[in-house]
Design a protein around this nucleic acid. Structure first.
Length: 219
DNA sequence: CAGTCTCG
DNA sequence: GAAT
């Protein structure tokens, strides 16, 4: 048996190596794994100040993802459109500050993907329950579109949809697991992306849900 | 407008 | 591609 096919018969999954998803886009498998506990503790603290809630699109439709934010600004959607807001519309107070554990992870992951000096001012926290999806979209509400996007997956696995610059471009599907980080910038900064409906399941740490942390430099 | 939806 |  060759070394490259041995994994087919092992108990352990094959090693997952970093993978280019597009020009300037990289999947870093397990990059956040050794920091999960501090990350979850930080997220818990944020949620306590700014609870997860379902936003409404400009068309008036309720998003299936439950969201909250931390950092200087937070991404919000309502009947008037999308925007980054320094205040949590639900409380009228500023979003919780971005915990150092989150800021550091985002900067480290960006650097590992070739983006030095990433200093996010916004962290969107998305909770997916089974059935939750996020339709194909672009991240284009950031004033600073030179900075990359850093996305951290925790809990249940998901299928990441990664297309191209045009909505009609071919869409690739990539499995994302607990601890994975995806970074995209440069030529793929405005690429369409999304999450397929989450499959049922239970994760040993997070239970029947997936958390996604998305870091942006909005201004 | 459209981070959703549905039809073909 | 329509919708709100």
């Amino acid at each position: 048996m060759s070394a490259t096919t041995a994994f087919l018969f092992d108990d352990a999954p094959p090693p997952r190596e970093r993978q280019a998803l597009g020009p300037g886009a990289l999947l870093l498998p397990g990059f956040a794994l050794d920091r999960v506990e501090p990350l979850l503790q930080a997220v818990e603290a944020v949620q306590q100040q700014a609870p997860l809630r379902h936003l409404v699109t400009p068309g008036g439709l309720r998003m299936s993802v439950a969201m909250t934010n931390c950092g200087h600004v937070g991404w919000v959607s309502d009947r008037s459109g999308y925007r980054y807001d320094p205040l949590d519309p639900q409380s009228g107070r500023p979003w919780p500050a971005m915990p150092p554990a989150l800021q550091t992870l985002a900067a480290d992951a960006a650097r590992a993907a070739g983006y030095d000096g990433f200093a996010p001012d916004a962290c969107l926290i998305n909770q997916y329950l089974p059935g939750t999806r996020l339709s194909l979209h672009q991240d284009r509400d950031e004033r600073d579109q030179g900075a990359p996007i850093v996305s951290v997956s925790l809990g249940l696995p998901a299928v990441f949809l990664f297309g191209g610059a045009q909505r009609g471009d071919r869409v690739a599907r990539h499995a994302l697991f607990h601890g994975d980080v995806v970074v995209w910038g440069g030529a793929s900064r405005l690429y369409f992306h999304g999450i397929a409906p989450l499959k049922e399941g239970s994760h040993p740490v997070l239970g029947e849900r997936r958390l996604n942390l998305t870091f942006r430099k909005a201004r």
